[in-house]
């Protein structure tokens, strides 16, 4: 079952070659991380394109998700923002089982290398490790596409308040820059600036005194160093 939270920005967006642009926010329900990520994406600012937030409750693959929402990848440029659990070659969907197996062994596949051929044109994989083989697949098998992901394990402080505020800024900022920046260098520079700003906040002044400031700094720096941008 998929709950489509809302179409946040109703106006039509168009990409450079005049295809329709759609921003698809996919958060497969799994655990506290995905519950947290869902809240971060709920108030994404206007990106100049229709935005569909999918709270994915049961296993589904990327192509089926497109099909269920009547999205034709030949007519629509999809920008997929995925938040959840990932591996070197896959983005995971909700658990397959009734809970008897461990969550790690029972995860369904939402997106893997078999889906690279049908897009999306922009993919932000906000999860551990996916920049390795999935990123490589994007690099080798796509043209005119952008992939942003992490090539190592990443961490997050899953607390509300100031922490959620900064993660939200990072996530929204990367999404916005991914759609806007024309070159890899520019995109890398913009994203790096987002992380530097957050690290600086938790390193100095009052920001340094927050309860989890140290963990924020080490996880922000880890993400910044593990981030990989691929434009084809």
């Amino acid at each position: 079952m998929i709950e489509q939270a809302s179409t946040i920005t109703p106006e039509m967006g168009f990409s450079a070659d005049s295809k329709r642009l759609l921003v698809l926010l996919a958060v497969p329900a799994q655990d506290g991380l995905t519950d947290y990520a869902l809240k971060l994406l709920e108030d994404l600012p206007n990106l100049g394109a229709p935005t569909l937030l999918c709270d994915i409750k049961s296993p589904i693959t990327y192509d089926d998700l497109l099909s269920q929402n009547c999205i034709d990848y030949r007519e629509t440029d999809v920008a997929l923002v995925f938040c959840g659990h990932g591996s070197r070659d896959s983005l995971f969907g909700p658990s397959l089982s009734d809970g008897s197996a461990s969550p790690q062994t029972a995860r369904s596949i939402f997106f893997n290398q078999s889906h690279v051929a049908i897009g999306p044109r922009f993919l932000l994989a906000f999860c551990s490790n996916a920049a390795r083989e999935l990123g490589e697949a994007y690099d080798k098998r796509t043209t005119n596409c952008t992939f942003v992901g992490f090539e190592d394990e990443i961490g997050m402080v899953l607390a509300e308040g100031i922490y959620a505020q900064w993660w939200r800024g990072i996530l929204h900022g990367i999404t916005s820059e991914m759609l806007r920046s024309p070159t890899t260098q520019e995109l890398e520079k913009s994203i790096s600036a987002l992380y530097k700003q957050a690290i600086s906040f938790f390193s100095t002044g009052d920001g340094r005194n927050h309860r989890w400031a140290l963990m924020m700094r080490i996880y922000l720096r880890r993400q910044s160093e593990a981030l990989r941008v691929i434009q084809t």
């Binding site: 991380l33 961490g155 899953l158």
Partner: peptide
């Protein structure tokens, strides 16, 4: 409260 890699 802390997520890292694959676990919370």
């Amino acid at each position: 409260i802390l997520y890292y890699g694959d676990k919370i």
